[in-house]
């Protein structure tokens, strides 16, 4: 079992326009914990920094500052090739995340070979079929020999999930795994992820902009706005009882047929000028905290800002 402790993650991008250089802070002091068997949903609009966090966690980008601490149960830190093996990612676009040149078998066999999970071609092949069956792609033999363009979007996304699990992942970053799929198959893919998570006791970071699936699929929700965490807490609490203006706005904007008589269409409540991302409501602590500052300080100053 592996747990991830992310603290005070900061990522700056330098922008160059002409001779002028400026800095864009994509992620500003974000802290979160991923625990085996639990799903944390990272919710926010595009440009809020969700994908940057995913890239940092999968070590495709280096953070400007902050720590990503991944440890096994016995407290040994996860490093190097073990990190590559344990922290895996499912990408948003199933049409882009599989190499059109290679067969499905290649995509799943490579991680197995790289991390020496199998030792002979025969064993690898059997393992590939096993993985495909785990994600409900049958007949596995047939699917394995196909190439990505011969599969539907949902099938591809399952292949991507199988690939992520192949090296023996313990931490799964799912970056909008269903937003590009047809609506009637989204549920299936999410439920598949859920089942695999229970079987392998994975720690899952579910990145999405869809509040409804975030609520139902995850245990904890972290709302990100302009690089800062503005609200966090148990899924139901955040959605049903939002405190921060931005979360309220998101919850109101999401289509919801349950709502009575389409009231939201008549409200002019989406003025974002007034939204303040310097405070964060923590449902666990039940109090307002300062956002965009080191976690320790935020907690210390929480009391002072509580009233605001």
């Amino acid at each position: 079992m592996t747990r991830v402790h992310v603290s005070d993650l900061v990522k700056d991008y330098s922008l160059r326009s002409g001779l002028r250089r400026s800095r864009l802070r994509a992620v500003d002091h974000v802290s979160l914990d991923l625990v085996p068997g639990r799903t944390v949903a990272l919710v926010g609009e595009s440009g809020s920094g969700k994908s940057t966090i995913a890239k940092i966690l999968t070590r495709m980008e280096k953070p400007t500052s902050g720590v990503v601490d991944v440890r096994l149960d016995d407290d040994t830190p996860v490093q190097g090739s073990l990190y590559r093996r344990q922290v895996q990612m499912v990408f948003q676009d199933p049409f882009a995340s599989l190499n059109p040149f290679h067969s499905i078998e290649h995509h799943i066999a490579r991680p197995l070979r790289i991390h020496q999970r199998t030792h002979s071609p025969q064993e690898t092949h059997e393992r590939v079929l096993e993985m495909l069956e785990r994600v409900n792609l049958t007949p596995a033999e047939d699917i394995a020999s196909r190439r990505p363009h011969e599969l539907s979007g949902g099938q591809r996304q399952r292949v991507a999930i199988a690939r992520a699990l192949a090296p023996g992942a313990q931490v799964l970053i799912a970056d909008e795994p269903v937003s590009m799929l047809d609506v009637s198959i989204r549920l299936g893919v999410l439920n598949l992820l859920g089942r695999l998570q229970r079987e392998d006791r994975l720690a899952v970071l579910y990145i999405t902009h869809d509040l409804a699936t975030a609520r139902h699929f995850s245990d904890e929700i972290v709302v990100l706005y302009r690089g800062r965490v503005v609200e966090r807490g148990p899924a139901d609490a955040v959605i049903l009882d939002p405190h921060h203006d931005y979360t309220k706005l998101l919850a109101m904007a999401a289509p919801d047929p349950e709502r009575v008589d389409r009231v939201t269409l008549t409200q002019d409540g989406t003025d974002r000028g007034a939204i303040d991302n310097s405070v964060c409501f923590d449902h666990f602590a039940g109090e307002w905290q300062e956002a965009g500052v080191p976690a320790a300080r935020a907690r210390g100053e929480a009391a002072a800002r509580g009233a605001s």
Binding site: L190, L193, V204, D219
Partner: peptide
């Protein structure tokens, strides 16, 4: 609805 929450 048809959703299955993960975790505990």
């Amino acid at each position: 609805g048809g959703f299955i929450r993960s975790g505990f």
